[in-house]
Design a binder for these strands. Structure first.
Length: 414
DNA sequence: GTCCATGATTGCAT
DNA sequence: ATGCAATCATGGAC
């Protein structure tokens, strides 16, 4: 835009067409315009609509070329700006829409908006990691997810482009229209700017709808493909075995340390949090129904015992155990009862402790534990702080299966 | 289709 | 932050 009176390059005062000469007797003598001049011009403007089209066109042209026109035009623009626009312009300082920001952020995070390269797959990987399982068997589903995501991305971008193109076209059209109109009425650059702003706001509200529906599509896609609850996969047999081995060989204190969890996770091809989940579930379910797990406990106890007697370090099957303080903090508090776990120099229940646990269960397997005075040998501590893991867990291995320990102990635990 | 097993999530307590 | 308990949601056997 150039100066006041858009699209109207300044008219040199002396270029007035001959047709106007008669209207303006003062033009040639170099005198400044008088009030009467202005009055004449205004009169002509006022009456222009009453005339025929041809007449009006001719007069319009004459007025356009009048030497007073630029000055009058700028004055009108100024007045207009000072009145109407100044009031509105204050209200137009719109803040960034928080909802739009949220949508933008989400689309960016999901890899729909933003840089193309690796966006989608990175998001998919992140989502997969967040959902927990990265088991190899859902790699197919993840690639499917990526494909679908990139489809959404494509649609989003093509739509966005369309909107932008339409917005630009419309803006240009309106600007041209305003320029054209500015020849007959005062339109300041600010007014045009304002108009452009209005158009952009309209289009951005349309874009927001696009973003919203894209977000919804991504959400649906995510929940369909990546929601771990929907796509739960059982761990592999080998993984379950590794976890069970650890669990039953550390039955007196089945709280793997962070390092142990990491090691188990590595072995099982699952995440640390999955290991934590597994142990959490296992502890609860074991405690709730010890009878049910009796057989399983015996199997793993025998397994571990065999590997121990064969000289296999139990650590090979069960990673390093909890810290000497005990992850729950409770199991080693009164370690005097547990002659094995409390042994100095063993750093908790590593090798020998596992051995003991295994043997304990192997004895329990034959239901011969009664003669072993289990309360002294194998029930390590009275659990006060932790709600009594041992109370529930330890006696089970020596309890007669007919006793139905589950109900009894789950009662005590709850 | 039902039932049970099981991995994940949630809310709460410590 | 971690664990417990309840619960959800799905897989798989029948």
């Amino acid at each position: 835009m150039q100066g006041r009176g858009v699209g109207l390059p300044g008219h040199p005062p002396h270029q007035g067409p001959p047709g106007l000469q008669g209207m303006n007797p003062h033009q040639d003598n170099g005198e400044p315009p008088r009030k009467q001049d202005i009055g004449d011009i205004l009169q002509q403007i006022m009456t222009i609509t009453d005339q025929s089209l041809d007449e009006a066109q001719a007069k319009k042209h004459a007025l356009n070329c009048h030497r007073m026109k630029p000055a009058l035009f700028s004055v009108l623009c100024e007045i207009k700006e000072k009145t109407g626009l100044s009031i509105r312009s204050n209200q137009e300082e719109e803040p960034v829409d928080p909802q739009l920001m949220r949508l933008d952020n989400m689309l960016l995070a999901e890899g729909v908006a933003g840089p193309e390269k690796g966006g989608g797959s990175a998001a998919a990987a992140a989502a997969a990691a967040a959902s927990g399982g990265v088991s190899p068997d859902n790699s197919i589903e993840h690639s499917d997810y990526r494909n679908k995501l990139s489809q959404i991305r494509q649609i989003y971008h093509s739509e966005l482009e369309k909107y932008e193109q339409a917005c630009n076209e419309f803006t240009t059209h309106v600007m041209n229209l305003l320029r054209e109109q500015s020849r007959t009425r005062p339109i300041s650059p600010k007014e045009i700017e304002r108009m452009v702003g209005i158009i952009h706001r309209k289009f951005s509200s349309i874009q927001m709808q696009l973003k919203q529906s894209t977000c919804e599509a991504v959400m649906i896609l995510r929940s369909r493909f990546l929601d771990a609850r929907r796509k739960r996969r059982n761990f592999s047999k080998q993984a379950t075995e590794v976890l069970n081995e650890y669990f039953y060989s550390h039955l007196s204190n089945p709280y793997p340390s962070e390092e142990a969890k990491e090691e188990l996770a590595k072995k099982c091809g699952i995440t640390v949090s999955q290991v934590s989940n597994w142990f959490g579930n296992k502890r609860i379910r074991y405690k709730k129904n010890i009878g049910k797990f009796q057989e399983e406990a015996n199997i793993y106890a025998v397994k571990t015992a065999v590997s121990v007697t064969q000289g296999t370090h139990s650590g090979a099957n069960s990673p390093t155990t909890p810290t000497s303080a005990g992850s729950g903090g409770s199991f080693n508090l009164s370690g005097s009862n547990d002659m094995f776990l409390g042994m100095p120099g063993l750093n908790g229940d590593s090798y020998q402790a596992s051995q003991v646990e295994a043997l304990r269960h192997s004895m329990g397997a034959g239901a011969y534990g009664e003669g072993m005075v289990p309360s002294q040998m194998y029930s390590p501590r009275e659990m006060r702080a932790n709600g009594g893991w041992q109370e529930a867990a330890t006696p089970s291995s020596v309890t007669s299966p007919t006793e139905g320990p589950g109900s009894v102990h789950s009662d005590t635990s709850n």
